[in-house]
């Protein structure tokens, strides 16, 4: 049976979306992390990621099969970050252009050395090594989504104390990851 023009368009659209999702899903976190490296604020990074994904989809026709999808995505992401900074120039908390370039290099270097899955595996090991009180804190913040104010009420300590404690836990985890990677010779 012959298909009508709009049916063909629909089929093509579905196929294209399937291809796009197939490429995006394994690398979305990498793109997200890259944006976060450049803007550091989580809410900004989420906004920019959404704009980046829309742009990637709109320009997917321009992506050449077999070329580096992540590199293509990161180029668009960087453009979106710069666009965001320009639009919100009255906003104080942006890294200066020189630092942005350095951070971008660092992000690309890291991506080339180890994968997101490797980092997650190592992080799981490192979390297991934490003390109970540190795991409690992480659980409240990341699994139960409590605010810092909520956690401080739970523990009867000040909000800055919670920031300090959580900051220290992050530092311990980062050191643990660094050490593990060094031991594996991939840092």
């Amino acid at each position: 049976m012959c298909k009508k023009g709009n049916e063909v368009d629909k089929d093509l659209h579905s196929l294209q979306l399937k291809n796009f999702m197939g490429l995006l899903v394994p690398h979305q976190r990498q793109i997200h992390a890259f944006i976060l490296y450049l803007v550091v604020n989580r809410a900004d990074a989420d906004d920019i990621l959404q704009e980046t994904l829309v742009e990637m989809w709109n320009k997917f026709n321009e992506y050449k099969d077999g070329t580096n999808f992540v590199a293509w995505g990161l180029t668009i992401a960087k453009f979106k970050v710069l666009q965001f900074i320009q639009k919100s120039k009255n906003y104080r908390f942006h890294f200066d252009p020189q630092l942005l370039e350095l951070l971008e290099h660092e992000a690309i270097r890291k991506n080339g050395v180890h994968t997101h899955n490797e980092r997650v595996e190592i992080l799981k090991e490192c979390v297991s090594k934490l003390q109970t009180k540190e795991k409690v804190m992480l659980d409240l913040r990341y699994e139960k989504n409590l605010t810092f104010e909520g956690i401080s009420r739970q523990f009867g300590v000040s909000v800055p104390a919670i920031y300090k404690a959580l900051g220290r836990t992050h530092a311990r985890l980062a050191q643990c990851i660094k050490l593990t990677l060094e031991q594996r010779g991939v840092a």
């Binding site: 992390a33 660092e106 980092r119 992050h170 985890l173 980062a174």
Partner: peptide
């Protein structure tokens, strides 16, 4: 600091991963 900065941000994102959260223990 730049090297450590990227690792710390990986920790932030990683802690939102449910696989990692499974290691927080049932509290």
């Amino acid at each position: 600091a730049r090297g450590f900065y990227a690792t710390i941000l990986d920790v932030h994102l990683g802690l939102e991963d449910v696989e990692v959260q499974a290691h927080f223990g049932r509290t």
